[in-house]
Simulated assay, not measured.
Amino acid sequence: MHLSRLSSLILRAGVGAVTAATLVACSTPTPLPPMAPLPTYPQQQPAPPAPIARPAPVAPAPQSNPNASFGRPAAGPSTGRFDGNANKGIDIAGRLGEPVLAARAGQVVLVSNALPAYGTMVILKHEDDFITAYAHVSRALVAEGDTVSRGQPIAEMGQTGTDRVKLRFEIRKAGVAVDPEPYLSGRMQ
């Protein structure tokens, strides 16, 4: 048995030596092999900032001459001129839904779409011999009998009875169509 005890001691000593050798090997720094370089990627540009939601632009207020007896009813440019025959007023370009303003204080005497050539229209009677007509509107904001002031929204720009969005604006004096431009510019009262 002495031999088996000896072998057990040797075996134990061997395990201890292996353990000691392992500990020694782990405690001494061993240089690591060099690492392969990391791959390079093209730099990504930061994403552009999301656009800021802005409200739709509002049409500028019509430029009216304060000395004129009538204010301009819509902000857009004139696209059709008075000729007294085919065009008994002026055409003013615009965008669908833009406001149409009363050119002068008065009373609403008609809101109708009975005349196909004019589409939906609003007619105002003024304190003297004048009436104004606003044709091709998409929606009237006033009713017959309403009293309105100069510059008050009375309708929205439309294209009823026409092929494009526009306002047909007419002035009639004693029932006769007159050129609106001199009244809008202040050359005529």
Rank of each mutant, 00 (worst) to 15 (best):
G106V: 14
G89L: 07
G84P: 03
F82E: 01
A59R: 08
A102D: 07
G97P: 12
P49I: 09
P31Y: 02
A61G: 00
P49Y: 05
V111T: 02
G71K: 11
L38D: 12
P57Q: 04
T40W: 05
P99D: 09
N113H: 12
V108Y: 02
M121L: 09
I92K: 05
D91L: 10
P62T: 03
S69C: 06
G97F: 02
V108M: 03
I90P: 09
A53P: 11
D91E: 13
A105N: 15
K88F: 00
V109W: 07
L38M: 14
G106K: 07
G84Q: 03
R104T: 11
P37E: 13
A56L: 15
L115Q: 14
V108C: 07
P49L: 15
A50T: 14
F82N: 04
Q44N: 06
S64W: 04
N87H: 14
V108Q: 02
R95K: 15
A102S: 10
D83Y: 00
V100G: 00
K88N: 12
A61P: 05
S64R: 07
P77M: 05
A50S: 15
F82P: 03
A56W: 04
A103Y: 06
L96G: 07
A61E: 14
R81W: 03
A86T: 03
I92G: 09
P31W: 11
V111R: 13
Q43N: 04
A105D: 14
L32E: 14
R95Y: 12
A50L: 14
A117E: 13
L96C: 04
A36T: 12
G94Q: 14
A74S: 14
S64M: 08
L101S: 10
V100H: 01
